[in-house]
Design a protein around this nucleic acid. Sequence first.
DNA 1: AGGAAAACTGCAATCGTTTGCAAATCGTGT
DNA 2: ACACGATTTGCAAACGATTGCAGTTTTCCT
Lengths: 340, 340
Amino acid sequence: MSEDRTTRTAVRTITDLARLAGVSPGTVSRALAGKSLVNAKTREKIEAIAREHGFRPNQMASGLRRQKTGVIGVAIPLGHDVRQQISDTFFMTLLGHLADELTLEGYDLMLRRVVPEDDADWLDRFIGSGMIDGVIVIGQSDQFARIEDVADGYLPMVVWGNHQQGQRHCVVGTDSRLGGRMAAERLIAAGARRIAFVGDTTPIEFAARFAGAEDVAQRMGADIVALPTHLSPDRASDEIARHLAAADGRIDGIFAATDTLAALCLTALRERGIAVPEAVRLVGFDDLPIASQTVPPLTTVRQDIAAGARGMVQLLLRRLAGEETESLVLPPQLVIRQSS
Amino acid sequence: MSEDRTTRTAVRTITDLARLAGVSPGTVSRALAGKSLVNAKTREKIEAIAREHGFRPNQMASGLRRQKTGVIGVAIPLGHDVRQQISDTFFMTLLGHLADELTLEGYDLMLRRVVPEDDADWLDRFIGSGMIDGVIVIGQSDQFARIEDVADGYLPMVVWGNHQQGQRHCVVGTDSRLGGRMAAERLIAAGARRIAFVGDTTPIEFAARFAGAEDVAQRMGADIVALPTHLSPDRASDEIARHLAAADGRIDGIFAATDTLAALCLTALRERGIAVPEAVRLVGFDDLPIASQTVPPLTTVRQDIAAGARGMVQLLLRRLAGEETESLVLPPQLVIRQSS
DNA sequence: AGGAAAACTGCAATCGTTTGCAAATCGTGT
DNA sequence: ACACGATTTGCAAACGATTGCAGTTTTCCT
């Protein structure tokens, strides 16, 4: 046991191991890397010693030499709502799936939360660090322009977010505008004529959701207004309450930018004694777990998060291989429950 | 613009930059590292060139030479409920706060999701990779023994989870047993006499929550049973429904291991037409955002996630500095709402 | 002006692994 | 016994940044 420990600590480098095995470091490297050039018996012996001593080649050294690290960077740019987004259920779920997919492909994940306002060249810094082979950006926030800039000179990058005509960076995301249309159509079909959009329209994907809803409202002759609301639950609660008070009775449908916001709307509506869906119809977005657990359960526009994560990783892999891939736009899906 | 780009690509290494600045690589290194030994004018010139070309020293090379990487590994061991935990709200929130705290301290975060069953020495592998300066393990899952083993020979590790008498690894976590006691006390104070614990008692922290509740039940002469339930929402729903059906009317209080489970209980109870808190009192655990949004809002045992994250990072920093720190046990807090 | 101390800078080795190239070993057919 | 491919191995130069040590320049004092 104790001699096991002493011998164990002795083998720290490939050279130590080589000495033990009576071969050169090069051979050890080749054996451990599974190259075909090394004799079967030699390889076995080396592997045995490696196993016995729990030896792992140093990834830093390996990465330096091979000029690739086996690490993918995942950046979460936080806009104004700093505190919020990192714990935003949607992004976190996406992150979880990304971790799964990347692990599956043999990559590690380096997570970086960035505040673009404090740190103008967050993206260049991340990429230029030499620590990552490629980067996934979760959410464009208000950084569209900067991402476009970088995309011109750096291939292995995939972004979660909204697709715009003619953009140059590779993006994966739900068709927000279509989703917005679906939401508005449902609200109107359920009898709404005076619709409020609850959410922040600054981030590009939310703007698209609103725009989609506007399309439909205009076409079907319904009213729609945006009620600017932050995404962080603590601030949103008050804002929603204020919105409802201000709009007092003049609203018969709400399209919430997010299920989280929709749930808060539900609470606020209940507090004011407004019946859902009878007096006000409500549609959310995302289909987070919470959507099915509210009272009444939320009608919402579903985003397929798992498919999104898989898509991002697959596209990134192809870009790592040098291919210039197209963007991937996923179809949203209306999930009808009882809030409208 | 285009010459900007060509010159930009020219400066990839510290040596390139040195050539441009007319000094030696060593000087550039010192200047960029902010050492005092370099002349003010020289430093300025070097910094100017670096800024102009967007140069960043390669972290891999730096890490190799300095034998430290500036990266902290965060491992999330997934037990039987593989699919669940990575998107578990509690862990994800903790992860978010960890990212914040680590960023604040100048560290990057490498996230690794591990399935201990498939990969026996996940922890050694992570540590031995040479990519991380220290490791934070989120949740002990069923890996207590393995973590103890590693802790003997590796200082910079902090684990989120339950503290046990005499354990050797540094852990940060809420006093689950105390939390369990609080929950049971509240249930009994609210009139419950036949309590059910909904959750999986295999993971050590849940076992402690149950044990705490048992303490109180026994002392106060109430009944308590554990109803084994998986944590993933899809499986849990059915299981809870089945539990309720089986227990039909013989239960007047539920202690859910998690707010997520509590919310599901609420839904299931409503479906069976059981009034909360009148017929059945309900207490959750964690105080996740969802707790305040259910109908009725959940009485729950609050864990201070932000404090936990901060504590873990601070302890890890001290351990990185060579100090053998104690564990940190945080006090839970009963938040009384309307479900009991 | 001369000289010693102080302030900078350059040299070259080093971190641990990979890999092109050359050398060594093996097997086999004559 | 020898030659000739085919396999295996070893050698040594990278990868890019850091740092102890030694050398150079500057500063300052008499």
